[in-house]
Design a protein around this nucleic acid. Structure first.
Length: 202
DNA sequence: TGCCCGATTAACT
DNA sequence: GTTAATCGGGCAA
């Protein structure tokens, strides 16, 4: 698998986000395959960068290819990959991984064994990979981070972002179709599933 | 300064 | 299904 370089992130956040599905991310050798992400841009009110630069979101306003880590609900850490030319304040929130490397460490850090609960959520994956405020601003193309492009083609599911109350209309959540490691399933279109269509359509 | 509310999770009923 | 945990940003006063 080809290594992801910094230039990969210097594109529209809406191009980078789906391209990250199926890619591999490791931190200190622990990680897996990205199966769910969301795109955020400073022009819409759900983004932390919407109201301008603060101490917390400063990394979002910096160069692409770096991680923006923030505290969620005062309890959990969430990690984003900064995109677009410097100043766009756009980033991709990493929401779920399929655990592949360092399973023993992940189980120890998370205090549970079920692989489906190790990295299926933005707070969960940061706990499993031991990512916190200490890593805020780290570059993605040098150790301890290691990113690789996906190998072949993947089917990508699209839907509205999760857990927000503003700008809910944008379908900027992307996932690996059919993955068991999503934080939540994507809605199935009626036309894709005859059984569901038969029961849900009057 | 004080209050409200989150890009969440786990443990409840 | 509901709720507690816990804290920083944003805004009203």
């Amino acid at each position: 698998m080809a290594r992801i370089r910094r230039s990969f992130f210097a594109r529209s956040v809406h191009a980078v986000a789906p391209d990250l599905i199926g890619a591999t991310v490791l931190f200190d050798g622990v990680g897996g395959r990205i199966v769910e992400v969301e795109a955020y841009h400073h022009t819409e009110p759900a983004a932390h960068s919407y109201r301008g630069r603060t101490e917390r979101n400063a990394v979002m306003f910096g160069p692409p290819g770096h991680v923006y880590v923030y505290r969620s609900y005062g309890l959990h850490w969430c990690v984003n990959f900064v995109c677009e030319p410097e100043g766009s304040a756009a980033a991709v929130l990493i929401r779920a991984l399929e655990p592949l490397e360092g399973l023993a460490k992940m189980r120890r850090r998370r205090g549970l064994a079920d692989p489906r609960l190790l990295c299926s959520g933005p707070g969960r994956l940061c706990e499993a990979l031991a990512i916190s405020r200490q890593q805020n601003g780290f570059a993605l193309d040098v150790p301890p981070f290691e990113l690789h492009r996906r190998d072949g083609e993947v089917e990508i599911a699209v839907g509205p972002r999760i857990g927000i109350t503003k700008a809910v209309e944008h379908p900027w959540r992307y996932g690996l179709k059919g993955s068991r490691f999503l934080s939540k399933p994507f809605a199935v279109l009626a036309g894709e599933n005859p059984d569901l269509a038969a029961t849900s359509v009057k």
